[in-house]
């Protein structure tokens, strides 16, 4: 479970301070994939960084599985698996070496991590990638390794920050297919940050829309469609987000970087 209340975060130098998150509130329940949608610069990545304890919030609270990101960062870190746009793999190491390191950091012994890695890699069809140096892997394969890394210690919460942003259609499709598998998602709380409405429509059960650091939409896809009387999720969401963006511009809301 993820709960975010009145979250605020400023970024930039003292002279050039920008309000990135401005009273953001939403929740993501377990067992479903929650889409976190917004235009570029809306504050999605900053939110994900606050939730993964990379950044401290300026104000407000955020809890993951009951652990506060400021008061109990270790509890949060033990509860999350993180996938970002850039996998951040060390090119001269093999995925197996990297994944063993991450498993050890999470307290898994080698036998347990090897077993789980085998099961997950087989399910994801990437057993053959494990002993190739990361620098030689394609972008799609690197994204799969990043997903493996996030799932290896079986965290109750998955934070996926634009995991398909730099991937081609085939690789994106492969990642989407993985994220729809019950054995991958299990009963986890999944927060998927994306700027693609189609991706959210394909993968998510509910959505949170963010514009200029504030949540402007929250609910199931059916709720979103019903709220504007649109024929499909895409047009409903685009209408809602468009209206919110116009309102934010007119109101002089903090401009995203």
């Amino acid at each position: 479970m993820i709960e975010v209340k009145e979250l605020g975060r400023d970024l930039g130098s003292r002279k050039d301070r920008k309000r990135i998150l401005d009273g953001l509130s939403f929740s993501a329940p377990p067992g479903v994939v929650t889409g976190f949608l917004g235009p570029n610069g809306a504050g999605k990545t900053t939110t994900m960084r606050v939730l993964s304890t990379l950044l401290r919030p300026t104000e407000g609270t955020a809890t993951i599985q009951g652990h506060d990101v400021v008061a109990d960062p270790d509890g949060v870190r033990a509860s999350i698996g993180l996938v970002t746009e850039e996998p951040g793999l060390l090119n001269r190491l093999t995925p197996r070496e990297l994944l063993r390191f991450h498993a050890r950091c999470h307290g898994l012994d080698d036998a347990a991590s090897a077993h789980r890695l085998g099961v997950l890699a087989e399910a994801m069809g990437c057993l053959d990638l494990l002993d190739t140096r990361s620098g030689k892997l394609s972008k799609g394969s690197r994204a799969k390794v990043a997903l493996l890394r996030a799932l290896l210690h079986d965290p109750p919460v998955l934070l996926l920050d634009e995991p398909t942003a730099n991937l081609d259609v085939v690789a994106t499709d492969a990642i989407h297919e993985l994220l729809r598998r019950p054995e991958v998602i299990d009963r986890k709380t999944v927060l998927l940050s994306t700027h693609s409405v189609d991706e959210a429509d394909r993968l998510c059960d509910r959505v949170v829309g963010i514009v200029a650091g504030k949540a402007v939409v929250e609910g199931s896809k059916a709720d979103v469609i019903a709220s504007v009387g649109a024929s499909d999720f895409r047009s409903a969401f685009v209408t809602l987000l468009g209206n919110a963006t116009l309102a934010a511009s007119a109101g002089g809301a903090g401009e995203a970087p």
Binding site: T84, E86, H102
Partner: peptide, 13 residues
């Protein structure tokens, strides 16, 4: 540079 920091910092270390 290699962006590994984003995956090292969320470790329970």
């Amino acid at each position: 540079v290699d962006r590994s920091i984003e995956h090292l910092l969320p470790l329970p270390v």
